[in-house]
Design a protein around this nucleic acid. Structure first.
Lengths: 384, 384
DNA sequence: TACCCTAAGGAATAGGTTTTCTCTAGTAAG
DNA sequence: CTTACTAGAGAAAACCTATTCCTTAGGGTA
């Protein structure tokens, strides 16, 4: 690295340097760079040139100190940035980044002491607002912030029902699943889901039951099989369900993991999916849903939208137009082979769920001591 | 909300307010709060009391402006905070948080324009350093920062081989798998992995081959089956492998997803795992590895350690003790039933992979209007 | 009494930027 | 010729804190 020796001007150039270079005062330079005040075009150009030449970037700290706002927000999650908070975070970051707002991320690991500590830190940093996300939609105790710092809850909510919270539509997701089954002529539905102590599980079940009832179908809330959020429970639940209700022709699962387990057991028991039994999962967790055989139809909670919406509410609050109460973001159903015999029959022709077909690579000459074929495939796949 | 009307002092209290309240000058208040200078104990106590009473928290911006450093770093990922960058991020945040350093997270979505934009933002915010993470370990073009801002690459590396980079041990991971097989007496190994254009895939294969060769076994690099990172390829690859080498008794897979596909096909073909064929995955991605039947032995790259180590190197660089070149963080093998017949035979007695057995919840009366039967499973799982 | 020393705390400065106010010179109107 | 106004640019205040340098008062010593 050449720049180990900091050189004469390791200090980042300030507006003072720009002003000197352009032969104007500091105030004039500021006005020129920000398009303020009355200046000759020639002067503006000169300052701009100087700034470019020096690689000047205004010190956001100084600006924030003066303006009284930092154009930054804190994002607190209790979830170790798990599967649910990530998309929320991404959506929020997206919406905020467009407004030139930066995000401090804080992972409390569900530890109140850490939460306290992060909160103090964020307050010291004078963030303009706070987004709180979690992995469960159950109301949590309100986060204590000093007045003037707005808070929005995303994928969780406060016990204080007046505080703004953005939630996915678990209830509506359950309805989507039920209606999809009903539209396909399925009349013997089942439901295998997570623990009943999860509000999300109860809401999904509730929406499912309600939609079936509205259509004149029969499925009692008492028939819902609550268990845990695991493939193992999916396998077990499928055995229980088939045993209790051999004619079942449609199973809605509370998560894609459960659905994977169910799918596994159905195949073992000789039931064809979707022909004999249609299957719908929840979360649209692609590695899970696409990896299943056949790929899973699944309810997508649109968590990025949840995050984006939360960010928009926060921006509104920062601009003195706070919102109140819970807002629900609609879910959508992503239809794949596990629920649709027609898709299923076509699936043989398709090679990949995303992108064009590609032949598997075969072994070839070695490179670096390891055998490897020429990498003559296309480069769409990019997980690894 | 009571505090909609900001009230007389919506402004956060400053040290000036504290000083006034305590009846001292600003300088004295500062010294009292920071334990500097010569002050009477009584004075310090008075200032501390005033600060507590007012809920004073020093303005980090002002302090940073003065000190010339911000106690913040930028974390740039090209990976949309995917499966690999998350643990890295978590580890980094952990190590930095302990040093009271906050993290700005930036997701470039692999778009150079966004990267540029985030970089400018971070420079404007005068971060003390930068961590760059990616989803692939292939060298990438060096990120262009002004002098004085140290950079550490994590889970990726720079084309400039002198810049510090922390990588997982793909090669060593392959060796771990091979040695585990060999120690269990397996003599007919196979390997199914992702695309050969991925350096990680080649390194894993290389370590696997090398360890077998060292032990006097036979497995030619030409026998490695390169494909894609999907369950589907796992299924397909298993068919190919079994066809070409019917006596295979151990299969190492380049990812847990591939291993799931392989596991599926083996069962379909009537091979018992692990009795007939032992199976090892890669990534130790718990939802995948634990959900498999039987649960997968898998190589864990210890990505949190990668992140933590990267943060430590960055801290060193910030403190004028920069490091150079690539450092490899060891992987470890997490042994589960898929590779170990003895574990397998015991597994029936075990209920959960993590933590002690705990009595199942019993279905209580319904709650929230949805009826529910007993949820007789255990309650360790807390995703959902 | 004159001097020095110390303890305690105040004043001032720096850090980088934006904004408001002020100043100068030039121009147009009366 | 005087007045009023405008364009253009500089000077200074403000944001908040940490630190360095000063001031003051009091006590001790010669």
């Amino acid at each position: 690295m050449p720049q180990v020796e900091p050189g004469p001007d390791s200090r980042r150039p300030t507006i003072r340097d720009v002003a000197a270079q352009a032969g104007v005062s500091i105030g004039t330079a500021s006005k020129a760079l920000n398009g303020q005040g009355k200046l000759r075009d020639e002067t503006r150009a000169r300052v701009a040139a100087a700034a470019r030449e020096l690689g000047f970037a205004p010190n956001v700290l100084a600006r924030a100190l003066l303006a009284g706002r930092t154009y930054s927000v804190g994002l607190i999650t209790t979830d170790s940035f798990g599967r649910f908070s990530i998309p929320v975070m991404l959506g929020a970051e997206d919406a905020l980044g467009a407004g030139q707002i930066s995000v401090f991320m804080c992972d409390t690991r569900d530890d109140p002491a850490r939460e306290r500590q992060y909160l103090d830190m964020l307050i010291s940093r004078r963030v303009d607002g706070l987004i709180v996300t979690g992995r469960r939609i159950e109301p949590r105790s309100s986060i204590s912030t000093p007045p003037g710092i707005p808070v929005v809850y995303a994928m969780t909510q406060s016990l204080d029902t007046d505080e703004p919270a953005i939630l996915p539509d678990d209830y509506g997701g359950g309805m989507l699943a039920a209606r999809h089954f009903l539209a396909a002529g399925r009349r013997r539905p089942g439901h295998i889901t997570g623990p009943a102590r999860f509000l999300a599980a109860r809401k999904r079940a509730s929406g499912y039951c309600e939609a079936i009832a509205q259509a004149g179908g029969h499925f009692s809330p008492a028939e819902v099989l609550y268990g845990e959020w695991s493939e193992r429970w999916g396998r077990e639940g499928a055995h229980i369900l088939i045993g209790a209700n051999p004619g079942v022709d449609a199973i809605f699962c509370g998560s894609d993991q459960i659905a994977r387990g169910v799918s596994d057991t159905l195949r073992l028991l000789g039931h064809r999916v979707p022909h004999d039994i249609a299957l719908i999962g929840f979360d649209n967790w692609e590695p899970m849903a696409l990896g299943a055989e056949p790929p899973l139809t699944s309810v997508d909670m649109c968590l990025e939208d949840v995050g984006r919406t939360a960010a928009e509410h926060l921006l509104a609050a920062i601009n003195d137009a706070p919102t109140h109460g819970v807002q629900i973001v609609p879910s959508r159903l992503v239809i794949r082979e596990s629920s649709d015999p027609q898709l299923q029959s076509r699936s043989a022709a398709r090679r990949s769920d995303r992108g064009p077909a590609m032949p598997p690579e075969q072994g070839g000459p070695d490179e670096s001591g390891v055998a490897m074929p020429g990498s003559e495939q296309n480069a769409t796949g990019d997980d690894g």
